[in-house]
Design a protein around this nucleic acid. Structure first.
Lengths: 337, 337
DNA sequence: GGGGGGACTGTGACCGGTCCCAGTCTGTGA
DNA sequence: TCACAGACTGGGACCGGTCACAGTCCCCCC
C-alpha cells in the first residue's frame, strides 16, 4: 500500500510502526520479551503476524557478533564420510537440537590438507560460533591449531591429542567394550577375536583396552586386528584373523560396519553366524538391525550425545568452560551373538 | 599498539587507514579492483596483508542482500541419507565448486513434515541465495511450494512434478539404461531382470523405461521389481524375483547399492556372480569398485553434475533463467557383468 | 510531600560492509 | 583557453538489526 513497487521484506521498523511502538520494544519482544508490558507484547506479536515479518539473520549477526550457526566438522577422508552411518546419526541429532534453538548447522569437511586450510580460515573469520568436532585422529595437528585459535570446540569422543583441554562428549568406551566382551564370555565363547578401530581414535584405542582388560588371561594378542571402521577393512581384518587361526568362536568388532564385513568373509569361508562364530558390532547404527543376521551390538545414545554436544558447545560459546562428559552405552542382544 | 585492549578484528576502515586511502577504494580493490590506480591497489593489498584483514561476511550480506551461500537440500528420509553413497559424491563436488567461489554450502535435511516447514521458513528468510535440490519425489508438494515462493532452485535429475519449470542437471537416464541393457544383451543374456528405483523419481522411472525399450520383445514384466535404492531393498527385490523365476541370467539394478543387495541374495541361494547370474549396477558410487566382485555399472559424472548445478544455480540467482541440462553417463565394465 | 526504585519505552550510536554521487585531476580536441 | 570526457577517489547514506542510556510513569514508603 505504502509503496507500489516490488514488495520489500518487512523490517523491524515496519513492525514497530504497525504496532505503534518503537524498534527497541519490538526487538525486546523478539528476544524473549522481558521488560515489555503485556499490551505492547500483544500489539507487537499481532503486528508481526500481519506484516509477515521475519528477522534478518545477517543484520542480527552483524550487530551481535554471533552467527547463529555451528559447524559440524568432519575430518575424515571422503570415502569414509558417507559409509560410516554413525556420522549420519550424529548429524541428524545435531541438526534437530539446533533447529529447536532456531540455529543452523553448517557442514564442513576437512579431509585433505587444502580443505583443512579453507576450513580454518572459514572458522577463524567468524562464520560460525563454534565447532562440533567429529572423529578426530590424534596424529592430526589440525585440532591443535583450531584450539590455539581460541575457537569454541566440543569434540565427539575424547580428543586423544588434547585430552583435558577440549570439552567433549563420549561414551564410556572401555566400559562398553568390557560389557560386550563379558557378554561373549558369558555365552561360553573363549577364542574371541577383536577387530579394533584405528589406534589414534578413542573408539579404536579404548575399546581395545576394554576388550583386553575383560579378556584377562584368555587374551590372545594374535586375535587382535584393526581396521578403519569401514566394511571393507572389517572384511580384510577378518581374512587376516582366519589365516592366523581357524578356531575363533566369536568376533567383537569396534563398529557395525566392520562386523558386517567380518560376517561376509566368515560366510564365504563356509562358517555360519552365529552357530560357528558369533559376531558382535558396536554403535547400533541402523545397519545392525537390518543386517542378516541382525547384529548384537553396543548402542550409543546418539540422540543424547548430539544434544549434549550442542548444549555444551553453546555454553562454551556463551563463556562457559565445558567439560568431559561421559555417557553410557547399552548392550543390545540380537541374533548374531 | 593502537588499543591495548583485546585485539579487535581489523575492519575495512583499519585497512583504509593503513593504506592511506578511503574505505571506498579498499572496497573496490576487494571486489575486483576496477577503477583503482595501480598505486592504490598495491597499497591496499599490502595493508590487507599487514593487518591480517578478512571481510566480515555478515556485514557484506547485509549490505548486498546476498548470503554468499547455497543450500544442499536433501528431501530423503534419514535412513537413506547416509546409506546412499551418491549423495556424498554430489555433496563433495558441490562443496568444492562453491569453495572455489569463496561461497559456502549449508546442508539442509527435510525428511519429516516438520523439517520441511523449518526449511521452507529458513530459505524464505533469505539465509541462502539458492537451493540445490537433491532427489525429490514427484509426489512431494514441497518442491512446488518452494518454486512458488520464487526461490532460485536447480534440481539434480528431472523434477517429475515440475518438469519444464525448474532448471535441472541430469544424465540421460533412459539412454544410460539402454546402454547397460544392450551390454547385457550383447553378452548373450536373455532372461534379464530389472530392479528399478521408486517410480516417482526420475532415476526410477526413466531407467526402467530405457530398460523396457531396449529389451523389446524379450521383456518379461514379471522380471521387473523395484526398491528404494538401498541395499536392503535390493536384496528384498532379488528375493521376490527369485521366488518368481529361477532362470534369470542377469540382473540390472538401478543403483549400485541395490545391486550389492541382489548379489548377497544370489550368493545365499547358491548362485554364482557372474557365472550363473550377471549383475549390473548404476551410479559407479565407489561401492562398485570395492565390491566383491567389482560391479559393472553406469558411471555418473558426479564432478561435472555438481559443478554444473552450482554454476547454473548461481546464474539463476544472478537473474538467468536456467535450463534442463543433460549429461551422458558412461558404461564401466567390471567383473560382475 | 518528597525521594527512591522498579517497570517499561524511545532514541541515537553502532556493527562492517556496499553503493552511489559528487568531486578532483589530467589529457584532449575545438 | 576552455569545455569535456574519462580515470580515479572520498565520504555520506544505507542495509536491519542490537544495545546502552536516558527518560517517563507509577507506586510505595518514610
Amino acid at each position: 500500500m505504502e509503496q507500489s513497487g516490488a514488495a520489500r521484506k518487512p523490517t523491524i521498523r515496519d513492525v514497530a510502526a504497525a504496532a505503534g511502538v518503537s524498534r527497541g520494544t519490538v526487538s525486546r519482544v523478539i528476544n524473549g520479551g522481558h521488560w515489555v508490558s503485556p499490551d505492547a507484547r500483544a500489539a507487537v506479536e499481532d503486528a508481526i503476524r500481519r506484516t509477515g515479518y521475519t528477522a534478518n539473520h545477517h543484520a542480527r549477526s552483524l550487530a551481535t557478533g554471533r552467527s547463529g550457526s555451528l559447524a559440524f566438522l568432519l575430518t575424515e577422508e571422503h570415502h569414509l564420510l558417507f559409509e560410516d552411518p554413525t556420522f549420519g546419526l550424529l548429524l541428524r541429532g545435531a541438526a534437530e537440537a539446533l533447529s529447536q534453538r532456531s540455529m543452523t548447522l553448517v557442514l564442513l569437511v576437512a579431509g585433505t590438507e587444502a580443505e583443512k586450510e579453507n576450513v580454518l580460515a572459514y572458522v577463524r573469520a567468524g562464520h560460525v560460533d563454534g565447532v562440533l568436532l567429529i572423529s578426530s585422529h590424534a596424529s592430526d595437528p589440525f585440532l591443535g591449531r583450531m584450539h590455539e585459535a581460541g575457537i569454541p570446540i566440543v569434540a565427539s569422543g575424547l580428543p586423544l591429542a588434547l585430552e583435558g583441554l577440549v570439552p567433549s562428549v563420549a561414551i564410556d568406551e572401555a566400559g562398553a567394550a568390557r560389557t560386550m566382551t563379558r557378554h561373549l564370555l558369558d555365552r561360553g565363547h573363549r577364542r574371541i577375536a577383536h577387530i579394533a578401530g584405528p589406534d589414534d581414535t578413542p573408539g579404536g584405542r579404548f575399546r581395545r583396552e576394554g576388550f583386553r582388560a575383560e579378556m584377562g588371561g584368555l587374551l590372545d594378542e594374535a586375535l587382535v586386528e584393526s581396521g578403519d571402521y569401514s566394511r571393507e577393512s572389517g572384511a580384510a581384518a577378518m581374512s587376516r584373523l582366519l589365516s592366523r587361526s581357524r578356531d575363533i568362536d566369536a568376533v567383537f568388532a569396534a563398529s557395525d560396519s566392520m562386523a558386517a564385513g567380518a560376517v561376509s568373509v566368515l560366510r564365504r569361508e563356509g562358517l555360519r553366524v552365529p552357530d560357528d562364530v558369533a559376531v558382535a558390532g558396536f554403535d547400533d547404527s541402523g545397519l545392525a538391525e537390518t543386517h542378516d543376521p541382525p547384529l548384537t551390538t553396543m548402542r550409543q545414545p546418539w540422540g543424547r550425545i548430539s544434544e549434549a554436544m550442542v548444549a555444551m558447545l553453546l555454553d562454551v560459546v556463551g563463556g562457559g568452560s565445558g567439560r568431559e562428559l561421559t555417557l553410557d552405552a547399552e548392550l543390545v542382544v540380537r541374533a548374531s551373538a
